[in-house]
Design a protein around this nucleic acid. Sequence first.
DNA 1: ACCGGTCGTCGAACCGGTTCGGTGAAGTGA
DNA 2: TCACTTCACCGAACCGGTTCGACGACCGGT
Lengths: 338, 338
Amino acid sequence: MNIGEIARRAGVSRSTVSYALSGKRPVSDETRAKIQRVIDELGYRPNASARALANGRTSTIGLVFPPAGNHYTGMQLDFIGSVVEAAAAYDYDVLLSPSGVDSDRSFQRLLGERRVDGAILMEIRLEDDRVDHLAALDFPSVAIGRTAHPENGWWVGLDHTALVEACVHHLADLGHRRVAFVNRPEQLLRAGYESAHRGLDGFTKAAAERGLTVRTYCCGDDAASGQACLERILHDDPATTALVTLNEAALGGLYRGLAQAGRHVPRDFSVTGVVAGRWAETVTPQLTAADVPAEEMGRRAVDLLVERLDHPDASPRHHLLAPPISLRASTGPVLGTF
Amino acid sequence: MNIGEIARRAGVSRSTVSYALSGKRPVSDETRAKIQRVIDELGYRPNASARALANGRTSTIGLVFPPAGNHYTGMQLDFIGSVVEAAAAYDYDVLLSPSGVDSDRSFQRLLGERRVDGAILMEIRLEDDRVDHLAALDFPSVAIGRTAHPENGWWVGLDHTALVEACVHHLADLGHRRVAFVNRPEQLLRAGYESAHRGLDGFTKAAAERGLTVRTYCCGDDAASGQACLERILHDDPATTALVTLNEAALGGLYRGLAQAGRHVPRDFSVTGVVAGRWAETVTPQLTAADVPAEEMGRRAVDLLVERLDHPDASPRHHLLAPPISLRASTGPVLGTF
DNA sequence: ACCGGTCGTCGAACCGGTTCGGTGAAGTGA
DNA sequence: TCACTTCACCGAACCGGTTCGACGACCGGT
C-alpha cells in the first residue's frame, strides 16, 4: 500500500515509480504501463504526509477567522463556501482555523507546524496583529479585507466607505433627513473591525455632506438585538425615516421592529445597507442594498493566494471592490416630500 | 528550525529532544530545562507533516459535504461552525471537503492520501455510497444524519419523521384541514436525501392519521423559489391554510409569497417546519418550529468521532435527537373553527 | 573495434520527526 | 570488590515519499 509495495510488484525501483507518477523524468512506455496496472489494481494513492514532508508543500491553505461563538453570519458562510470551491479547482484543500490573534494556539498550529502553504484571513481589523505577523514572516497570505495600511499587502477588499456613502446619498436623494446607522456589535467596533469603522466613516461623511440628522448604533449579530436596536432608534428619535445597516444578522430583527412599531417598509420607513445579495433577497420587502459579492471575493482571494504561492517574489496585488447598489424594494421617498 | 537544530544547540541528541517534548520517556530536569530554553529562544514548533508521517496520525478530521454550488443553508453553517469549534477543543484541525460521491476526487484525497484521521459526513442520503464506502473500509467516520440502515453505524441524527409529524399534529390541533408540505429541492429528494424523505414520510403519515387534505411540493433552496412555490400552493388549492417546511433557505420567500397574496401570518395562514432555531427567529412573525439543534449535533458528532479514534474497537454509537416544537408566532387557529 | 552520447533505470540520501535497543555512569546490596 | 539495577541519554532504523548522481545498455559514427 506504499510506493515500495508498488515498486516490488511492478519489478522496478521506488524512484522509477515516483518518476512514472510525476513525469519529472522520462520512463519507458512499457514500464509506465506496468506500474499503472499495479497502481490501478491496488488502488494506490501516495501518502499526503510523506509527500508534504519531502517536497515542503502541503497543498493545503488555511482559512482563518475569529471564533465567533457560533454567531457566524451568512456572509461568512458565503466566503467559506466560495474559498473551498475555488481552492478545490487549484487542487488545494482548505483547513479551517478559528483564531483571533497571532499568539493563538490555533494560529500557531497553522503556521509554526507548517500545516498549510498559505492562509486566507477573514474579519480583518484596521490594526490587525495577524496581518502584521504574517507580513513580518513573509508568509504567503491574502486578507479578505484591508487594514489601515494596506499599501504593500495582498488582499481583496470591499470599499465600505464608498458603499455606505452611496446608501446615504440614495436615501438623501429620496428626501430622507433623519437617518440611523446600524453597525456591527460594539465589541467588534472597539476591536477595530474594518467594515465597522470604514462603514461608519462613510456614513458620517456622507451625512455631513447632505446635512442629515443622524444617529449611529451598534447592534448584536442576531435578530433579537436587531429588534431591540430598532426600538431604541425610534425611541431616541421617532421622526427617523430611514436606516443604513452593515449588520446582516440583525436585519430580520430590524424588520420585525419596524413591523411592530407599525412602520411600513418602504412607505413609512426605508432600509438599506451593505449585505450579501443572497441574504438581501430573503427579507420582505427585498432589501435595496450594496450587495457584498462574497462569492467573487472568496474566489479572488484564492486566485491571489495561488499566484503568490506560485511566484514567491511577485509584488503585492489587491482588489478593491465597490459594487453598485441593487435597487430592490425596501427604500422609497419620504411621504409628503414630493 | 528543525529538531536536529534544537538538539545541536542544546548539546543533546534528537531523540532526547523528542522525549523531552513528548514525555514518553523520562528526561532529567536539567536537560529538559536546557532544551526548553533553546526551543523558546528559537520559537521552534515540530513540523506537522513529519510528525504525521512518523506516527501515522494527522490530527485532522475531514468535514465532507456535497458541493452545493454555493447554496449553503444556515443550518449547514451552524454545523460547520460547531464542528470546527468542538474539534479545536480536542486539538484537531478541520479539513473541508466538498464532495458528492465516493469516487470523487476530493473524497479520494481525504481518504486515499490519508490527509485526515477521520471524517464527519453531512447531507446524508438514505442510500449513501460514501457511508457504505467508509464502512467497508472501516474508516473512522461519523455521519450527521442516518441512512436507511443505520443499525451498525456511527451517527448523530434528527428524527425528521417525528418532528414533521409533530408539526402536522400541531396544525391539526389548531383546526387546519388543508395543509401543504414544502420539501427540499426535487433533485435532492430524487437523490435520496434523508431529511427530505423522512420528513415527507412523517408528513404523509400524520396527515393520513388526521384525515387532512394535503399537497406536497419540492422547492429550490432560495428565496425566489420559495415565493414561486407559495404561489403554486395557493394556485393549486386556494383553501390551503397552513404549510410545513423543511426548507430553511426558502422560508423568506414563502413569507413573501404569503404577504403578496394578502395572507396574514398567523391569522390567515400558519407556517411551521423544521429549521435551525437561530434562523427561525429572523423571520417575522418568528417561526413556530422544531428547532434543529445544529450546534449540539456538530458537537456530538465530534465527540463520537474522537471516541471512535481513541478506541478503534468500540462498538457503534449514535444519537437520535427529537427536539420539541418551539412555539413562536407563526401558527394560529383557523378562523371560524373555534 | 572503439568512443561518445542518449535513454531508462537504480541506489542512496534526504525531508523531520518517533521509537526501539543498547550503553555508560551512578547507585545499591552482599 | 563485584554483580545487578536504575537512570539518562544516544545512535540507528523507520515512516513514505522525492531527487540527485551514477551506471549499464544501446545507438551511431569513424
